[in-house]
């Protein structure tokens, strides 16, 4: 199995996700990973604390994204969890905490090792500045289509 395939699982790539707040959303996504045992019970709190201190909202040309993540010690098995939201959720902006962004796509990065997936991370970050791919992610009709675009982009 390739590195990329091991980072993506169809259950962790969803569209139409609804959440009342950023914290509700992050906790729901973290709980889903916890239910599969890919993260430790400490993951959710660590993720939320980190998001508070070092926010991860990023404006991009097509739609604002967020890349919540935390330290590898809270992760058992590396996965991305992707949620395209039914309604935007307010995040604070990375590098400019006072500013907020209305996030439409969340890519939670749960890595068991901070450095071994660097190439994948670069491809992922590169995806955010690729207008064509971002338009495709925004327009993808369902989770399968979203999964296929991300898998192709980061492989």
């Amino acid at each position: 199995m390739s590195t990329v395939a091991s980072l993506l699982h169809p259950d962790f790539v969803r569209v139409g996700v609804r959440a009342a707040s950023r914290d509700d959303l992050l906790r729901e996504m973290a709980d889903q990973l916890l239910a599969r045992g890919t993260v430790e019970p400490t993951f959710a709190d660590a993720l939320l604390a980190r998001e508070e201190k070092f926010p991860t909202g990023l404006p991009t040309a097509v739609m604002p994204v967020a890349i919540p993540h935390t330290d590898p010690e809270h992760v058992n098995e590396s996965f991305l969890s992707v949620a395209r939201l039914a309604e935007p959720v307010t995040f604070h902006q990375m590098g400019a905490n006072a500013q907020t962004v209305e996030v439409e796509l969340v890519v939670m990065i749960a890595l068991a090792d901070a450095t071994s997936q660097l190439t994948t991370l670069q491809s992922l970050i590169g995806m955010f500045s690729d207008t064509e791919t971002m338009e495709a992610l925004k327009a993808a009709p369902d989770a399968d289509a979203l999964f296929a675009i991300i898998a192709r982009t980061i492989s």
Binding site: R50, F54, D71, T115, Q117, L121, Q122, I125
Partner: peptide, 15 residues
């Protein structure tokens, strides 16, 4: 440098 972790800063460094 990025906050806490190193994954984001490494990505920017490679860019």
């Amino acid at each position: 440098a990025c906050g806490g972790g190193i994954a984001t800063s490494q990505t920017v460094a490679v860019k």
